[in-house]
């Protein structure tokens, strides 16, 4: 069991280093980090040029941008798994002691860890907005689950990488709830409440307001995230290959 995982990890590391996938995986989040650092400067610039106060959108910018790594890592690891399916690695692993679920647990850990890590870094590293340290680990778990959901969605429904790429376009829709929650000040924004990211955005706002409603957001959000994850997991296990 341990041996299989060690072999997998070595393979992953080799894959990532060899083809500089890591470059992309790290480049994106770092670019976002840079952007967030420059955000106060951007606010001044835009206020001067367009007489437009960007600072009111700080929370939105941070909420939206700090979710991008989870989407990115979900996609990258989704494609890694699609690659491995093409090379029949998944069929091979499903007959080792690790089995399909073990493989998946392992494969989903990485994007989850990465995206939660980057999320906390972007949030607390830039200091743009104050969120409570008691809340953010819970929000980070939801963000990590977003990455897992993304990767699992691709590998459960796409037959190959071309289809995976097409479906990854739909992945973007998963995050549509975020701008809706932040920017659409009408009760109608609740029509996106079925999207898991809706609750991340809500938790952002409530944590920033130091409202205890944040615990409801976190609770419902976690339940919804796990429900969606389970749904995709079933689809994955049902696949013939």
């Amino acid at each position: 069991m341990k041996k299989v995982i060690a072999t997998l990890a070595r393979g992953d590391l080799k894959n990532i280093l060899r083809d500089s996938t890591l470059v992309m995986a790290v480049f994106g989040p770092i670019a976002i980090l840079l952007l967030l650092y420059l955000f106060p400067l951007l606010e001044v610039l835009i206020l001067e040029r367009f007489d437009f106060d960007l600072s009111q959108y700080r929370l939105f910018a941070l909420g939206f941008l700090s979710l991008i790594p989870s989407m990115l890592f979900g996609m990258i690891f989704g494609f890694l798994m699609l690659d491995e399916r093409d090379e029949d690695i998944i069929s091979f692993i499903s007959i080792t002691p690790l089995k399909k679920t073990g493989y998946l647990t392992y494969k989903l850990q990485m994007p989850m860890l990465f995206s939660a890590g980057f999320f906390l870094l972007l949030l607390h590293g830039t200091g743009l907005v104050e969120l409570h340290l008691i809340h953010t680990p819970f929000i980070a778990v939801m963000v990590a689950l977003e990455a897992a959901i993304g990767a699992l969605f691709l590998v459960s429904y796409a037959d190959n990488k071309v289809e995976g790429l097409a479906f990854s376009k739909l992945l973007g829709i998963m995050y549509l709830a975020v701008p809706v929650v932040f920017l659409w000040h009408s009760p109608w924004h609740w029509i996106t409440a079925w999207m898991p990211s809706f609750w991340i955005a809500k938790a952002f706002i409530h944590s920033n307001e130091n409202s205890s409603l944040v615990w409801m957001d976190i609770g419902l959000g976690l339940v919804l995230h796990f429900a969606v994850l389970t749904f995709f997991l079933r689809a994955f296990l049902k696949r013939p290959k």
């Binding site: 083809d19 996938t21 494609f79």
Partner: peptide, 12 residues
């Protein structure tokens, strides 16, 4: 490119 991730790294 050798695979999809590689393509994006090269092209992006």
């Amino acid at each position: 490119a050798k695979h999809v991730n590689d393509y994006f790294v090269r092209a992006l």
